[in-house]
Design a protein around this nucleic acid. Structure first.
Length: 403
DNA sequence: GTCAATTCACATGAAAGAGACCACGGTCTAGTG
DNA sequence: CTAGACCGTGGTCTCTTTCATGTGAATTGACGA
């Protein structure tokens, strides 16, 4: 019965008229043919990187801009073009792209070098070797033949925040150890003041050139959405004003194009699932809520138990009383939660860090305030919309085996 | 009333430990000819 | 004799704990008007 039902469901799904023609165009990994409103940046980058075609080392380059301003896209686009030309003309250029935020791949010095060495065809064990040994192996394999290597380090600020700036110092000096190969670095950062905290030596050698990506404004986002939706949706599947609304939402949040695209995609999926003939305005509102809920739920489920317990404690206090709550309170309740589920309670120091991390994820709002004579603490409040609360509480209780 | 000192309740930093994971080289063991 | 099992050492990485230091304004109390 249920099984049979599922078969017909799938069949119906296949028969159903779809709104999309090519959904890929709305995904963040998609690289379009042209990138609107980024001509300046592309030209700047191309000018700088062009030196590599004469087998001279291009200047190190630093790219700034907030999330969703097209940094990664432009970087990939220009480096791909360089690669194309170099292949045509037989110029030995290599481009490596690494996202430093990806856990377990490139978020420490060891892993970064190991990953690079692997891409050059030298297998490196995930752990067990001394870091300088890995450096040596990397340089060995890199220096085999004469070529230019362009190294794109995305979200480089994350890497430095975690491991310090020594790694960049090593990188800027790596050319001294190389006889044949020349390596130049493109650093991409979301953090506009990132270089201010760097060692001055690193700073000067790393950001020989800088390219800034300003946020898109609402009109520019509209252009992008129009361009992509032409590919992604079938003709006439978008209601009048849908694109305008999407871009307005995204422009409100510092012009994040990625967000706008996601919003449009999810809205399309919702409309499709509901059997609507067009993507309507209300679907966008639903999409926004769904994205937010999924985001939080995803974080909540994947976090370790200690995080879940802390969040559960915060959630409970918030439900019981209105107004702001403080670290001390949370810690007391947290200890109670731990004893209920038989979890070894952490020290307050650690819980304090966990609260800070929850704040970073945007699940809670935590602001350090001073209550004068009554000490200094964090003022905590939930930043989850009330409509999503029960689901998240359920997910937590499930994760923690609470009844 | 004014002003500096005090005080609270944590925040924030640094360092170090525990435990998981892993590579490498040396030693032991069992199977083979 | 040799391949594979096993062990010890030394390495990374993440999560924690321990110890130390920092912090901002309400409160306090001395002081002078």
């Amino acid at each position: 019965m249920v099984q049979g039902g599922i078969t017909t469901l799938f069949e119906a799904f296949l028969k159903k008229e779809t709104l999309f023609s090519d959904k890929k165009a709305l995904q963040s990994s998609y690289t379009p043919e042209t990138i609107p409103h980024r001509d300046n940046q592309i030209k700047q980058m191309a000018d700088i990187l062009a030196t590599s075609l004469r087998l001279e080392k291009p200047s190190n380059l630093f790219i700034y801009g907030k999330t969703g301003t097209g940094k990664t896209l432009v970087a990939k686009y220009t480096t791909n073009k360089i690669l194309e030309i170099s292949k045509q003309k037989n110029i030995p250029i290599d481009v490596f792209y690494l996202n430093c935020k990806l856990k377990k791949i490139a978020d420490t010095e060891y892993r970064l070098i190991a990953q690079l060495a692997r891409e050059l065809g030298r297998p490196i064990p995930p752990t067990g070797l001394p870091t300088d040994e890995v450096y040596r192996l990397f340089i060995d394999v890199l220096d085999k033949e004469k070529k230019i290597v362009i190294l794109v380090l995305d979200e480089i600020d994350q890497l430095v925040k975690k491991t310090g700036d020594e790694i960049l110092y090593n990188f800027t000096r790596i050319n001294e150890d190389l006889k044949n190969t020349q390596i130049s670095i493109i650093g991409i950062s979301n953090d506009l003041v990132f270089t201010d905290n760097l060692d001055p030596r690193v700073k000067s050698s790393l950001s020989e050139e800088e390219v800034v990506f300003p946020p898109y404004n609402a009109l520019q986002i509209q252009d992008i959405l129009k361009q992509r939706s032409k590919i992604a949706f079938k003709e006439g599947m978008l209601e009048e004003g849908v694109i305008e609304k999407c871009s307005a939402y995204a422009a409100r949040e510092h012009g994040d194009a990625r967000r706008a695209l996601e919003l449009l995609r999810v809205a399309g999926e919702i409309a499709e699932r509901k059997g609507a003939s067009k993507v309507k305005m209300k679907h966008i509102d639903e999409a926004e809520e769904k994205i937010e809920k999924d985001r939080i739920l995803d974080i909540v489920i994947t976090q370790p138990k200690q995080f879940q317990s802390t969040l559960y404690a915060i959630l409970n206090i918030c439900l019981k009383k209105n107004g702001t709550i403080f670290t001390g309170e949370v810690y007391e309740v947290y200890k109670g939660v731990c004893s209920r589920i038989g979890l070894h309670p952490l020290t307050q120091r650690r819980v304090s860090d966990i609260i800070a991390e929850l704040d970073m994820h945007g699940i809670i709002n935590a602001k350090v305030i001073s209550k004068g004579r009554y000490g200094r603490t964090r003022e905590i409040s939930l930043s989850i919309p009330n409509s999503n609360l029960p689901k998240i509480k359920n997910a937590l209780e499930e994760g923690l085996d609470l009844s």
